[in-house]
Amino acid sequence: MDISDGAARIAARDILSGPAPRAASLIVTIYGDVAAPRGGTLWMGTLIDCCARHGISESLVRTAVSRLVGAGRLQGERIGRRSYYRLTPDAGAEFSEAAGILYAPPAAAKGWLVALGLRSRPPGWASLGPSAAIAPDRADMPRPDASVLEAPDLAPEALAAPAADLWPLGEVAERFTAFLQGFAPLEDALRTEPGAPPDGAEALALRLRLVDAYRGAALADPRLPASALPPDWPGHRARAVFVSTYLALAGAADAEIGLNLGDDTCPMLAETEASRWRMERLRAEASQKI
């Protein structure tokens, strides 16, 4: 069965016939969305087949995997005549942190943190001078070894312009806008057209494109307090489109993973405790916005 005729089919065709993602980026997405919650290991043939649906050749896949091995993100193992690649421990930790942002983001920043007497600046902090920095006050923000002051949220006119100077808000907004241009039509069609969800192979391909496109913007987003963002900030709409589309595609995509992505040595389950946790968090987020 294919996507039914109508807006959903047009939107899906536009996405899957568009420019192919970079091979390394899509492979990282495959590991993050498919492999990480299912043990973290994939057969090379699985990667080649997944990428082929997006117009990425076998040679590009093998080159990208080799580079990811060289960068310490993947490590390989040969079993019989087949090569398998799994996440390294360091990469696994990075993927876990990224998964938190994608599938279960922490509560929005409630204010600001200001560090004084800073020797080194942790990720996410913006410099205010040689030994001072500012960051959004979120539960996942790393605290530096320095004096840290908590500041309440401030009026928009007090921080909007400085925030745009301290963080790349313009670039992040462009990424979210590009994501919306690509996926908002699909989200709308899947939400409103009866019988629109695609079959398993197409659902998985669309979900991988969805995650790949959203991941770049979401991981670059400093997730500042609302007062520091412009009133037309596209990140809010992008998040809603991501959650809605992911949930609409998940059932068929996960079934496809269980049926066709594993082999006898490295079986892939349709669902695991980790994948169910992701779905539960996304459903809870979606229900809060109804």
Rank of each mutant, 00 (worst) to 15 (best):
D49W: 03
D254E: 15
G170M: 07
A270H: 00
R9Q: 08
P194K: 07
L219Y: 01
E174C: 15
I134V: 06
E271K: 11
T245G: 03
E256G: 07
A20R: 15
R82P: 00
R82T: 10
T177L: 09
A189I: 02
A98F: 05
A155R: 10
L224A: 12
E174I: 05
A201M: 09
D137Y: 11
F242C: 03
R209H: 10
Q181G: 10
E187D: 05
P156Q: 14
L74Q: 00
D212E: 11
S127N: 01
L68E: 06
D212F: 02
E187L: 00
D264L: 14
W125Y: 11
S17Q: 13
E193L: 03
A205N: 04
A99P: 04
A163G: 06
A240K: 04
P222Q: 12
S275P: 01
M44H: 06
G92T: 10
T177Y: 12
I10S: 13
V211G: 03
R78H: 11
D153P: 05
G124E: 04
P21Q: 14
G76N: 05
D140S: 00
E202S: 08
M279W: 14
I290D: 08
A274H: 10
W125T: 04
K289R: 14
Y31F: 15
A248I: 02
Y85P: 04
D145G: 02
P152F: 03
P89F: 14
G170H: 09
F183M: 10
D137V: 03
S96R: 13
A126E: 09
A151N: 07
V34M: 13
T46W: 10
E97H: 13
A135T: 07
P156D: 15
L247Q: 11
A11W: 04
D90Q: 09
E58R: 15
L113K: 14
G235S: 06
M1I: 09
V114W: 08
R62S: 13
G76I: 02
Y31T: 09
S147V: 11
P225Q: 13
L249P: 11
A217I: 05
T29V: 07
A252F: 07
V241K: 01
P122I: 15
G55C: 08
C51N: 10
P130D: 14
M279L: 14
G258F: 02
A270L: 05
T265I: 13
S96C: 08
E187Y: 01
A250M: 06
A24S: 11
P156N: 15
L219E: 10
A52W: 05
